[in-house]
């Protein structure tokens, strides 16, 4: 089970066990990470599962698609080069230790 480290806006870090094949959004919402809202349930429509990927990890994720790129223009907090939608990050064994920073708000 890959571990994902979520860093809350107050810098508190929380490690959770994710399941290979699920999305980082599902791992978060299934483990009580309240900062991930995911209003659309993972359909890449709402941009409320925004995360900032740690700089050591951003290059190791699969590239984003056009839809995700367009949605990121609408996130509630500032879009940064490390911004991704966690519903589009698929958990693989190679992502064990992935560090995702949570934004202050999603709406």
């Amino acid at each position: 089970m890959p571990t994902i480290v979520f860093i809350h806006p107050d810098n508190r870090s929380e490690s959770i066990d994710a399941v290979v094949g699920e999305s980082a959004m599902q791992a978060a919402t299934g483990n009580g990470i309240d900062e991930i809202v995911a209003e659309c349930g993972g359909n890449a429509m709402c941009a409320t599962c925004h995360v900032y990927v740690d700089e050591n990890w951003i290059g190791r994720l699969a590239a984003m698609g056009d839809e995700e790129n367009a949605l990121l223009d609408g996130v509630a907090t500032e879009r940064q080069p490390s911004s991704r939608l966690s519903c589009q990050i698929k958990i693989e064994q190679g992502l064990d230790g992935l560090v995702l920073r949570l934004p202050e708000r999603q709406v």
């Binding site: 429509m45 709402c46 941009a47 839809e67 367009a70 949605l71 223009d73 609408g74 996130v75």
Partner: peptide, 14 residues
């Protein structure tokens, strides 16, 4: 679908 998604996107809602 892509057309309507962009017309009604999070950025437009802002």
């Amino acid at each position: 679908r892509a057309v309507l998604s962009r017309v009604l996107s999070p950025a437009v809602m802002k």
